[in-house]
Simulated assay, not measured.
Amino acid sequence: MRYQLELFFTALGFFTRLPVPAWVPWSPERLNHAARYFPLVGWVVGGIGAASWLALAQLFPPTVAVLLSMAVTIRATGAFHEDGWADACDGLGGGWDKSQVLTIMKDSRIGSYGTVGLVLMLLAKAAALIELAAAGEAAVAIALLVAHPLSRLASTSLIHTLEYVREDETAKAKPLARRLSTPELAIATTFGCLPLALLAPREAAAVLIAAVAVTGWAARYFVRRLGGYTGDLLGATQQASELAVYLGILAAWNFT
């Protein structure tokens, strides 16, 4: 049990800025095995987002509360996945071949594709959450609690199904370049999908379809362009599937 707790804290320390106990050891191998708990990290991030939204909604109009709660979660994660999304937009938008795409994504500077992509992603998520707020404070909180774990499961599924394509040994995601075992994937799937129980059946179905569609399309596109995934592409998948969850809920409402 202690080893499993250490793996969870390893994942939490890698994907967020939250402090972890000093007694938790770190190694690339532990991070590799910690992939099973990436969706559980989403529980923590989603909980932070939901709690901050509920608190801020008592003080400010929905639009302001949504934007501030987004800022809280971005602060908690250190914009880890947003950075991956921006890098992926730059690389895939500006690169012609695999080598050029990988080189652009590794550049710490943000380009026009990354800037436009990041702005549009943040605006789309904010707009979707503001629309959800029209149904009440609980709707936004539930959406956050569902979106963060499920979107991290989407990224984890790419680790299991695709090949890691960056050969740079210093890459941050290099320790993750190992397929999950069946029990590890089952743990990740459980933590990623369990929050769907918070939704109505129609909403849960729409969310699951949207997330699977986005993840499946991303996987095919990444394989076609690069032959597999990188750490930036995992972050991009998390961002895209998180947005897909919010849009799936809205689509279920409009369909009804």
Rank of each mutant, 00 (worst) to 15 (best):
G13Y: 13
T16Y: 08
L18K: 04
P21D: 05
P25F: 12
P28S: 14
R30S: 08
L31S: 04
N32A: 13
A34N: 02
A34C: 00
Y37G: 02
W43G: 01
V44N: 10
A50V: 10
L54P: 00
A57W: 04
Q58C: 04
L59A: 14
T63S: 13
V64S: 05
V66K: 07
S69R: 02
S69N: 03
M70V: 11
A71P: 06
V72H: 01
I74E: 14
E82Y: 14
E82N: 14
D87R: 07
D87L: 03
G95I: 08
W96I: 06
D97P: 09
Q100F: 05
V101L: 06
V101R: 15
I104M: 10
M105A: 12
T115A: 14
T115M: 15
G117I: 04
L123V: 15
A128S: 15
L129W: 02
I130S: 12
L132E: 08
G136K: 01
G136E: 01
I142Q: 00
L144G: 00
H148Q: 05
S151Q: 09
R152M: 05
L153Q: 06
A154N: 07
A154C: 10
H160V: 02
T161Q: 12
E167I: 04
D168T: 13
L176S: 12
L176M: 15
A177S: 15
R178D: 01
L180R: 01
T182D: 00
T189L: 09
C193I: 05
C193M: 14
L194V: 15
L199Q: 01
L199T: 00
A200N: 06
P201M: 04
R202C: 02
A204K: 03
I209V: 15
A211K: 04
V212G: 07
V214D: 07
G216N: 10
Y221T: 13
F222D: 07
V223C: 14
V223K: 15
R225E: 11
G228F: 08
Y229K: 04
Y229N: 04
D232F: 11
G235I: 02
T237K: 03
Q238V: 15
A240Q: 08
E242T: 10
L243G: 12
V245H: 14
V245E: 13
V245L: 14
L247D: 07
A252L: 06
W253Q: 10
W253V: 05
W253N: 08
N254G: 03
